[in-house]
Design a protein around this nucleic acid. Structure first.
Length: 535
RNA sequence: GCUCCGUUGGUGUAGUCCGGCCAAUCAUAUUGCCCUCUCACGGCAAUGACCAGGGUUCGAAUCCCUGACGGAGCACCA
């Protein structure tokens, strides 16, 4: 109608006419439609089919991706502990982009605060292990605390360019001036003095809080967050890494990260909305140096449902400290180590994270999504086993078979069957106890009737189940079963598993029938320890 | 207070740039049916969303304005 304004007055009639044609077309088969379209508009057909291919991607294209020879990204964690689930988002997304664009990514530990965000020496390796669990290997690994001299050199250069000044204002006093849009008296110091004082900072001649190096931006900038921000400050506490323990003058994130992103050659930066202003702050430094700022994508915060524990490295650390959690891999902890121990594949987490996309609004990750992805990955390979939680023991009567032989996997007969000796009594879950005189089918064994406190073997065949009269339940022999402790997000569950479970290796995944998937963890005395994954 | 940003079903997401192909995609969730010696897997079906109000237009999820709600920054944290 844009092309034919004459039709406009008849706009109301269009749906009636077009609707008929549309339904006619919809009645055609896919092949017929494609054929007809090829006759009428081969160009558009090609376009549609090209789009279909592009739609395979879960993530949007990176901004201006085509302008760069190589897409280069970084994951810049603060090494203050092992990763929680939310941390998986960064490697999941940049790793996926790296694969798509045949790009590059590094891990850069932004460990430039030895005091308030004091690095944990074990966290450096723990994080790299978490990354490996997720299925990624970084192309390079850096530690900011190795690169102080580089930051100092750039600070000196920036001072020469008139882009920074040393300032001894108390934080609060400066804040007041800043909010009023007024410069502090140190702003107009000459370059020589600034250089001298900055060297004194590097030499550790000031104590914490006595002197900072400010980046000169625009003291009247309408956004107060961008006015003359701190680039370097003094910290008395030595860095925990021995190689960096002598330094007292530390760069702030915005300076350090801004310099590194340029030197390491980032083309794209993905980060949280809490760092929305970082690019704008760093832009001032980039302008002084004549650098081009990388493309930036901001995303919102991730919440994960299903956990009582707050998803924060420091909170989890405190709970472990207090003994409320057994460690970083406690099944109740929202950490990657915990998911790993439960038998959840890193790949499932990555897929779920990629599915969240990169929107700037806050998002909730439903653990059920991770579980669904994981079930897809492990269902086929996980053998079936019986595990009875907190069972009730019942004697058997009526001469049932000596051995039961349920399949290891319903879809893979070739894997064979389990050999479960039956004995004189079984455990059933209390919820599965039949009412008096009712029948129940013990899976892989046969039909029983609950009479006079015993399960009486009836000898009926499977048709009673097929006809829908009898429920099928799982069970274990009372005599030869193995004690099992299953650790779950809601606490430990104990019970008994069929004897074969005692022979499984650690790390094997099983599906306890009608209970859920679990990972075999190890033995503890005569008890088998397992971790529950999900239904 | 100042400054940014956002809002599509229970959850996540596509579509928004460039208005019509959107009575809105896909996944997950929930429910029902089928399959089944598991409540797994698989198959089928149902449920369910454009924050609100104005405006522009023949036509608005899409553009404009106002409002509501939510988030972020204004640190010598990252």
């Amino acid at each position: 109608m844009g092309d034919n304004p004459d039709f406009r007055p008849h706009g109301d009639e269009i749906p009636g006419i077009a609707g008929g044609v549309v339904s006619q077309v919809n009645d055609l088969s896919y092949e017929a439609k494609r054929e007809r379209l090829e006759e009428l508009a081969p160009d558009e057909l090609a376009e549609i089919e090209a789009e279909d291919e592009a739609d395979d991607h879960d993530l949007p294209d990176l901004p201006n991706a085509g302008d760069y020879d190589e897409i280069r990204m970084r994951c810049a964690p603060n090494p203050n502990g092992p990763w929680h689930v939310g941390h998986a988002r960064m490697p999941a997304v940049i790793g996926t982009y790296r694969d798509r664009y045949d790009g590059w990514f590094c891990v850069r530990f932004d460990d430039t605060d030895p005091e308030t965000k004091r690095p944990d020496l074990e966290a450096y390796d723990a994080i790299l292990e978490d990354l490996e669990y997720l299925g990624f290997e970084p192309d390079a690994v850096y530690r900011a605390s190795d690169r102080l001299e580089t930051y100092y050199d750039h600070a000196r250069e920036l001072i020469e360019l008139g882009g920074a000044y040393t300032c001894s204002c108390a934080g609060e006093a400066f804040s007041e001036l800043k909010n009023a849009g007024e410069p502090c008296p140190h702003r107009e110091k000459d370059t020589e003095t600034v250089l001298e004082e900055f060297e004194a900072m590097i030499d550790g001649e000031y104590g914490s809080g006595e002197m900072v190096l400010r980046i000169k931006t625009d003291i009247e900038h309408k956004n107060p967050a961008l006015r003359d921000w701190v680039g370097f400050r003094m910290i008395d506490t030595p860095h925990p890494r021995e190689d960096a323990s002598e330094y007292r003058c530390w760069p702030m994130l915005d300076f350090q990260s801004g310099i590194d992103d340029q030197l390491i050659g980032m083309t794209h930066i993905i980060r949280g909305i809490d760092l929305q202003d970082s690019a704008k702050r760093q832009q001032f430094v980039y302008d002084y140096f004549g650098w081009e700022y990388p493309e930036v994508v901001h995303w919102g915060h991730v919440q994960v449902d299903a956990y009582d524990v707050k998803m924060s490295t420091s909170t989890i650390g405190e709970l472990i400290e207090d003994g409320d959690l057994d460690g970083w891999d406690d099944p109740r902890a929202p950490t990657l180590q915990s998911l790993r121990r439960r038998g959840i594949r890193g790949e499932a987490i990555v897929e779920a994270m990629v599915g969240l996309g990169t929107s700037t609004s806050d998002v909730d990750l439903a653990m059920s999504t991770v579980y669904a992805k994981n079930r897809d990955l492990i269902d086929d390979e996980s053998d079936r086993r019986f595990f009875v939680r907190e069972g009730t023991q019942l004697p058997l009567g009526g001469s049932p078979p000596d051995e039961a032989n349920p399949a290891l996997h319903p879809d893979h007969e070739d894997r064979g069957v389990r050999e479960i000796p039956v004995g004189d009594a079984v455990f059933l879950e209390s919820e599965d106890l039949p009412a008096r005189e009712e029948r129940v089918w013990l899976k892989g064994l046969g039909c029983f009737q609950y009479t006079r406190d015993t399960l009486q073997y009836t000898g009926e065949d499977i048709d009673v189940v097929r006809e829908g009269d009898v429920d099928v339940v799982h069970w274990v022999p009372a005599e030869e079963s193995v004690p099992v402790r299953m650790r779950t997000m809601d606490g430990d569950v104990t019970g008994h598993a069929e004897p074969g479970v005692g022979d499984l290796e650690a790390d094997e995944l099983v599906q306890f029938e009608r209970v859920g998937f679990a990972r075999i963890d190890g033995e503890n005395g005569d008890e088998i320890r397992t971790y529950y994954a999900h239904p």
